[in-house]
């Protein structure tokens, strides 16, 4: 009987090993300053108790892809393990002079612009690796921009599951309906990553999107 139990235990462990689901690689994509890193930090704080990215009011704060592995997220009794990928904001032009308005000196602004161009390239290259993507949009800004179309068009062409986080709903100018009207074929969740508003609904939708 003891030998039987040893074999059963071994069998159970091997079964668990081979049936273990792989971690879902979840990308956060969007234009600069939409709140991708703030959302990444919110998710990490909620489930790991620590932040993963630095945030700033100055655009292109995230200029390298940042990955946080093994984030165990729970929603409605279910659990999923994510590798969270916070990407630099995608833009079609980056002008160092835009950074000067934030009282950054000229040399630092030029360096920031140079790093930001590399960040955009890196973010695009990572698109192919994603299992699912949250497109983070600032809900106070007109969503009809080519960057948004290009990001979503590329995800659609690659058949990558997508949901849209309409961020900054705590601000007066927030207009979730404009985003819903622009992207009617994708689930849109209004939220504030900074204030932690509507995160339960966000996680609920995230599970639905990933399970598709």
């Amino acid at each position: 009987m003891a030998v039987f139990n040893i074999f059963k235990d071994l069998f159970d462990k091997l079964s668990a090993l081979f049936s273990a689901k792989k971690d879902v690689k979840l990308g956060l994509y969007g234009p600069p300053n939409a709140g991708k890193s703030t959302l990444a930090n919110r998710i990490c704080k909620d489930w790991l108790g620590e932040e993963m990215s630095s945030v700033s009011a100055v655009p292109h704060e995230t200029r390298e892809v940042v990955v946080k592995e093994k984030i165990e997220v729970k929603s409605k009794g279910k659990s999923l393990s994510f590798n969270l990928v916070d990407t630099p904001g995608i833009a079609t032009k980056i002008d160092y002079e835009d950074f000067l308005k934030f009282k950054i000196n000229k040399d630092d602004a030029k360096e920031r612009a140079k790093e930001a161009t590399k960040g955009v390239i890196e973010a695009i290259k990572w698109l192919d690796d994603m299992d699912a993507v949250v497109v983070v949009l600032d809900s106070t800004i007109n969503p009809y921009s080519q960057v948004n179309i290009t990001i979503i068009g590329n995800l659609a062409a690659r058949d990558i599951p997508v949901m849209i986080a309409a961020n900054k709903t705590d601000l007066k100018k927030s207009d979730i309906k404009a985003i819903e009207a622009a992207f009617p074929q994708y689930p849109v969740i209004g939220m504030s990553a900074e204030k932690g508003i509507n995160m339960d609904e966000f996680y609920d939708q995230l599970f639905k999107v990933v399970k598709k």
Binding site: K93, D95, Q146
Partner: peptide
């Protein structure tokens, strides 16, 4: 352009912007 070509256009734009000081990127709309 195809979506992949749009992404590639942005990527090439960024590469050329990094290499060419006078080039400050593009605006794009369909």
């Amino acid at each position: 352009l195809k979506p992949s070509e749009e992404a590639w256009l942005i990527q090439k734009t960024m590469e050329q912007q990094a290499a060419n000081k006078g080039f400050k990127g593009i605006e794009l709309f369909t």
